Simulated scan of single mutants.
Amino acid sequence: MKIHFKSSVIMAGVFILGCTSACSVKNKFNEVDVEVKNNLEFNRKEIVSIPSAKLSGLLKNTSEKNVRVKIQGTKDYLRTQWIDYNHDGNGDELLFEVDIKANSVVNYSIVSDTVKVPESKITTYSRFVPERIDDYAWENNKVAFRAYGPTAQQLVEEAKEGGTLSSGIDLWLKKVDYPIIDSWYKKNVESPGYYHIEHGEGYDPYHVGASRGTGGTGIWEEDSLKVAKNYISYKTIATGPLRTVFELTYAPWSSYGVSETKRISLDLNSNFSKFEINLRSDKKIPNYTLGITLHEKKGEVNINKLNGWFRHWEAIDNFFVGEGIVLAPEWVETAFANDSKTPDQSNLLIVTNPEAKLTYYAGFAWTGSGQVSDVNQWDEMLIKQAKIIANPLRVIIK
């Protein structure tokens, strides 16, 4: 057998309740009413997902492009986005953003209309970047990340300049809410090293090297971390105003022959990328470990195994960066700061039970962006993210 993992399903995100037999004919074919409940003690601005199957009645009489969402009792339509996971031309789920106060309920209506919804420069984005070897980069209005591809790996292995050998996750410290990926890469072609210098929009001072960056993975064994090399293929699933989704696939690595596909998504207004990991292995693996680089080991670590959040807080140039990983605590075996004398091998490590599938969130906040001003505010963001994972919005399709 190739897979030797325990099966496990954890609700992380939005919990969807199907339409009951009480659904009216009106709602099925002209309007779908949706109730969204926030049962936490703080306001939540999140993306809700409705499977297209729940809108089949409405879609019999209209096209996806004419589907609109509004708060009941209002006239203004919200921004929406369809996700087509298999690229067959049909949306698999409809996304819209909700803004719900603490311990509150908001009702929405999904209808058909041809009124144009205003566009915004605030969006999510991801793409393969051939002009910088073969990076894959993604961003929203808060944060930006990148991963490294096979050509960058090949350059290192052939002792040529310009390559990067790492399956760690890089951070780009942006301070503006509009997209910067295309602009920074274009200017970097014109002026090499451009995005490593602050020009008013932020910059990339974050060193990954062979470390885990923020959210890279491995297997912890015999006091060392076994890791994959660069991704070997990518698949862009969606980009749009509310969510970007893509997949990175890695060649088998370690003596266990571990293959992994990472489905990564980033929602508007979130500081955390969602990682959905699918694992395959030739034989049973001892663990699956997540990491955050400790760089020069001058930062501060906070390990909260009970609630499933783990963070690093460090000075970079004249500001501070908080990095963090959040996941369901029942998946965590142990966590510790590994102090190594080998460059780039000191990481905050979260050792999880080996699973065929694992979901976690990795992200950051930079004081230069104004999103946080101190470590206490970063801890509060992590605490809220852990509560959000444990208490998804309750969505009822009426």
Rank of each mutant, 00 (worst) to 15 (best):
T114W: 05
V115F: 08
P118D: 11
I122W: 09
I122P: 04
T123A: 02
T124W: 09
T124I: 06
Y125G: 00
S126D: 14
S126H: 09
S126C: 15
R132S: 04
R132Y: 05
R132K: 15
R132H: 12
D134S: 13
D135W: 13
Y136T: 03
W138L: 01
N140Q: 03
N141T: 06
K142I: 03
V143Q: 02
F145P: 05
R146W: 10
R146E: 04
P150C: 10
T151W: 14
A152P: 07
Q154T: 14
V156Q: 09
E157A: 13
E157G: 06
A159H: 14
K160M: 12
K160E: 14
E161T: 11
E161H: 07
G162Y: 13
G163W: 08
T164Q: 13
L165T: 06
L165K: 15
L165Q: 12
S166G: 12
S167V: 10
S167G: 14
S167D: 13
L171M: 12
L173C: 08
K174G: 00
K174D: 00
K174W: 02
K175N: 15
K175E: 03
D177F: 05
P179S: 03
I181M: 06
D182G: 07
D182A: 07
S183E: 13
W184T: 03
Y185G: 00
Y185H: 07
Y185M: 01
K187C: 03
N188M: 03
V189I: 12
E190R: 07
S191F: 08
P192A: 07
G193Q: 05
Y195R: 01
Y195S: 00
I197N: 05
G200Y: 04
G202H: 03
G202W: 01
G202T: 04
Y203V: 02
D204Q: 00
P205Y: 08
P205T: 04
Y206H: 09
H207K: 12
H207G: 04
G209I: 02
A210L: 11
A210D: 09
S211M: 12
S211C: 09
S211G: 09
R212Y: 08
G213K: 08
T214D: 14
T214W: 04
G215W: 12
G215L: 10
G215H: 13
G216A: 10
T217F: 15
